[in-house]
Amino acid sequence: MSVETQGWGPLLIIALMAVVTLATRWGGVFVMSFVPIGHRTRQFIAAMSGSVLVALLAPLAVQGDGGARLALATTAVVMLVLKKPLPAIAAGILAAAVFRQLSV
């Protein structure tokens, strides 16, 4: 089924996007309310919470351009040394910017 993007069509399209997104925001909480939280569940959750981020970042690091890789590497190093997120993020962005300005 397709919806026209004229008139009030976009409202229907946006409403569908909003409902699906809200379902993903609520779904995990809803499902967990039926799962007993034991030691194993906690371990699953703890391992998964870091893994979400790693899984999000891995393709970015492997498929990204040199600027993207340099940015991530710089952020990781500065974060390991200073243990403060904001300088680490700033250094990463700066690294990407410098790399891309120099390599045209």
């Binding site: 993903t24 995990g28 809803f30 959750i45």
Partner: peptide, 29 residues
């Protein structure tokens, strides 16, 4: 475009936002 396919739209939005499911689960405790 002139028309938007609703099933493809819903699937795309769901797939990209599915990580919210995991986030909600990790926050549950």
């Amino acid at each position: 475009g002139a028309q938007v396919p609703m099933l493809a739209l819903a699937l795309t939005v769901f797939a990209i936002n599915a990580r919210h499911l995991l986030m909600g689960a990790t926050l549950y405790p």
